[in-house]
Amino acid sequence: MPTFIDEAFLQRLSNLRFIVKGRRKGHLAGLHASPRAGVSLEFADYRAYAPGDDFRYIDWNVFGRLDRLLVKTYVHEADLPIYLLTDFSASMRIGVPSKAHYASHLAAAMAYLGLRGLDRVGLFPFNDQLIPGLPARHGMSQMGKVLRLLRDIEPSGRTSINQAILEFLSQTRESGLTIVISDFLASGAAFADGFSRLLHRGDEVVVLQVLDPEDVKPHAAGTTRIVDVESAERVTLTIGQRTLDEYADRVRRNREQLRAFSFERGIPYFQTTTDVPVERFLHEDLRNGGLLK
C-alpha cells in the first residue's frame, strides 16, 4: 500500500461523497438516483396500473378520489460506475512530490469515496495507451487492489489521452462517472476527440488537472538546455525574466483553453498544484466545485 494512504486520511474523507448531476442507469442498487423507477423511499411519479404491477404500489387514495388505478413509482437508487483514468506518463514524474504521486493520492481518495458510496470503481492508468488496470468493481476489496496498482505503477512513456480514452471505451460498455486525472500539458486536440466520445457515450466526465508549481512558475536562469521528459527532445534557451514571463503566459493560456473546453461541454474542471495538500483540494476545491458534498 502506498505510504500516502493511511487510515487517518481515509477517515477524514468519511464525510465526503460524490454528487452526480444526472440519474445513472446502474444495474446494481447504489446511492445514486437511477432513471429507472424502482423501489426506494423517494417518490418519483404516477402511472397507470398495468396488469402485473405490484398491488402494493397502487395509490388507493387517488383511486378513491379519481376512481383510477394509478401506481406510485419511486426513484430507483442505482450504483454508479466510477472510472478513474489516471495519467502515468513520464511527465507526471516531474516534481517533489511528483505529479504522479499526487495523482495517485487523488485517485485513491476518489476510489475510496466511490467504494464507500457502494459504487463500482475502476482504475485505468494510461500514458500513450491504456495500461492494464482494474475494471469497475464494488466492495472494499477493490480498494486494496486500487492501492496496490497505484503503488506499482511507474510513470513512463508519452501521453496520448485520446488513444487512452478510445481503449477505455472499448473496454467499458457502461457509462459512468469518468474522472480524468492528468497534467493536461498538451494542446486541446490531444484530448478533445476522446472527451467527445466519452460524452457521447453518456459518461459524466470530470477533469482534474494536476500541475507541479515548476510547471506554472519555473525557476530558471541563464543558458539552459530544456529537455522534454517524455520525448527527450531538447531546446537550448538563455532564460531571463522575459522568457519566464512568456512561458507563464503560455501556461496560463493552456489552462484557459482547457477550462473553456471543459466549460463548453459541461465538464467540471478542477486544477491543483502539488504544493496544495490533497485533503485541502478535496475538502475545498472539489467540494466547492460541486463534485463532492
Partner: peptide, 25 residues
C-alpha cells in the same frame, strides 16, 4: 551541463531568449 527536464517542451519552444542587457545577463 545545466539542463532542465520539463513536462511539455511545446510550452518552451519558440520562447524568446532573454533580451536584457549584457550586464544583467
Amino acid at each position: 551541463e545545466r539542463q532542465r527536464e520539463v513536462s511539455a517542451l511545446f510550452l518552451w519552444e519558440g520562447l524568446p531568449g532573454d533580451p536584457q542587457s549584457r550586464a544583467a545577463r
